[in-house]
Design a protein around this nucleic acid. Sequence first.
DNA 1: TTGTATGCGTTATCAG
DNA 2: CTGATAACGCATACAA
Lengths: 330, 330
Amino acid sequence: MATIKQVCELAGVSAATVSRVINGSDRVIEATRKKVQAAMDELGYQPNLAAQALASNRSNTIGMVISGLDGPFYGTMMAAVEAQLRELNRHLLIASGHGNAESEEEAIKYLSSRQVDGLILLTEGLSSEALLAISQSIPVFLINQQVPGLENRNVWLDNFGGAYRATQHLIEQGHRNIVCIGGPAFKQDANDRVAGFETAMRDAGLDVSGQPIFRVTFGVEGGRQAMNYFREQQLEYSAVVAGSDETAVGVYEWAEENGLVIPDDFSVIGFDNMNLSAYVRPKLSTVAFPIVEMAKASARMAFDVIYNKAHSEGVEFNTELVLRNSVKAL
Amino acid sequence: MATIKQVCELAGVSAATVSRVINGSDRVIEATRKKVQAAMDELGYQPNLAAQALASNRSNTIGMVISGLDGPFYGTMMAAVEAQLRELNRHLLIASGHGNAESEEEAIKYLSSRQVDGLILLTEGLSSEALLAISQSIPVFLINQQVPGLENRNVWLDNFGGAYRATQHLIEQGHRNIVCIGGPAFKQDANDRVAGFETAMRDAGLDVSGQPIFRVTFGVEGGRQAMNYFREQQLEYSAVVAGSDETAVGVYEWAEENGLVIPDDFSVIGFDNMNLSAYVRPKLSTVAFPIVEMAKASARMAFDVIYNKAHSEGVEFNTELVLRNSVKAL
DNA sequence: TTGTATGCGTTATCAG
DNA sequence: CTGATAACGCATACAA
């Protein structure tokens, strides 16, 4: 491994100058820059990261904690963040949490001890207060998490709008009695989706006072539970908006178990556009969102504020309705 | 951030001694060790990684390249590797490839320039020769890739056995005319699965000379292609063994498009046990394997040989048949 | 615009 | 078993 010393000898300049061209300083004349660049190329020089980090007190590494890597789109998100960061010549250190505050806290502690320059968080367990506290000591960037005081560090999905449009679509198809399976109440995105449902209903002059909303944990089992609940309540409905595609699968299973057929007996619309939504029968109509773009935006934002002291602004991403075969027009 | 200097002042020893207790050297008497430990605890001391790396010429980081993070189980694998490494006090640097040799090569180059201490490779594009070449300059550990000369650095799945048992199961259920959709011929695991199929057939005295094997790229579309091919060949079959669950989904779709019902008209068995196999109807019988265990084993192996100069041995993992509803007894 | 000198926090060599 | 001390490779004031 060539060192800066060999480069400066070959180029006939000082180490400081080489360091300047490495870091793209503008205080170096074009001629010397070229000379140095040539020397670096000839030697195949690669800066030693540890030395850089030690001298500059910067690891050039951003940490990312993901609450559970086996989730539907977390892998994709991570890959996109990694790609973006690599392009910007920074690195990504991953720590996977397990969906609970404790393990996420531990992951953050781990990353901090690895002295990352900043944190990208795709977590579910941490409270707003905890997040805010962490951000005092290290730049924090959020994905899909609205935290008061960190609005400008967040990249989020218009969950409200997505659910609104999904519900609206059902209404346009003639449905009036619509039931909603919401995610857990401690999850921001779940709440926004439920709110989107309610608003769309009200805007259409439809009643939502009859308990048509049931909260469950996301996942297949939740969908089944909710459907049983609706039956116990003897609710009439011709369509259900599910808080997630997985929940929708639970609804599918419940329908199957009860001899009901979708969308003839009732319609279903999901949220997330996971792969499975195209595999399931009937193919699931659902709400899609730009995973990769969101991830890249987050990485970009982190880069800009951490390394360029840029001012950042929160950015909202929009959903898109993906119409398949789980909704019937009445 | 406390430094080693403050620790040694507080403990009344030299930096060298502190360093020794940090690294668990045995050449330090118990009394001083305790003294130092107490000082470290009191100060909340955390060694500076960059300084350690610079001085020791070791990053304590292992790089991992994954050919495509959005794949079915790659995220899970990565999370498991990360967890294992973290437990061992090492770090994971990720680089995602895109399933082709070029991007994987670039990912490796990237990780090397980040001076990782070793590489865990879950790739698909790189040739054996390329892999072998890379391993000359840096310790390489493989997941699911048999490379001559790197046998002892590999953790792999018994793809042959898995396909063998799947086929055998079909035969036990009374099937005689069985057709096989294989993955691409340049993929080791695909070949092993095909071989497992052939052997199981032969062992049962069944004929495989009539072109019952068709190779496609993995994925839904591949399954459809293969089924069309079988029809063109006017092959008779009562069951198909698919090279992957995704391929099996393609078979499902083809059946649906052609008004055939599984498993009444023909049976299907998959491979991988992805989530979708439980979501699809009928639920897919398939071949499962221990993703997390394989990942951990790989991380452990890398750790042992890189940091403890241990000798390693390749380890094979076994599959398990997961019986659901896509196979009918004849 | 460039060079000099110093320090970053550890590890490792060599004495003691 | 412990202590000095010289690297490790680079960044950055400061000087020129």
